[in-house]
Amino acid sequence: MADAHKLEILRGLIKFKSNTQKIWGVLILLSIVTAIEVVLGIYKPEALEGKVIGMKILNWIFIILTIVKAYYITWDFMHMRDETKGLRRAVVWTGVFLICYLIFILLQEGGYIQGVYENGFVKRDF
């Protein structure tokens, strides 16, 4: 079992000699990503306040970095990289599909209700 680990990350860009070494490598990667998030979160650079597809660039960066972190936690800490394709797909695709659907309907509906408050005859500020 101990030899069954796949020891490369970033599509083979970084190769590790042992599983232990890979774990520390992934920790460094995750720490860097978190540090970037925190620094951006504190300083909020003006240049990233612009909007792309209805959301701030900064928020897109946060969400993408979060998914990157989630990928490495699942793939390397939870050893998803070493599981069979079938198990990987059964878990990941199910989750990704249902979560995307859920997010879409709820955010769509929330935006609609906001529009009703904004443009309708509901008084909220008193």
């Binding site: 979560i99 709820l106 955010l107 509906e109 929330g110 935006g111 209700i113």
Partner: peptide, 11 residues
């Protein structure tokens, strides 16, 4: 997602 819903509602 429910948090997101409420946040979009009071964006």
């Amino acid at each position: 997602a429910a948090y997101g819903f409420s946040r979009f509602k009071f964006i």
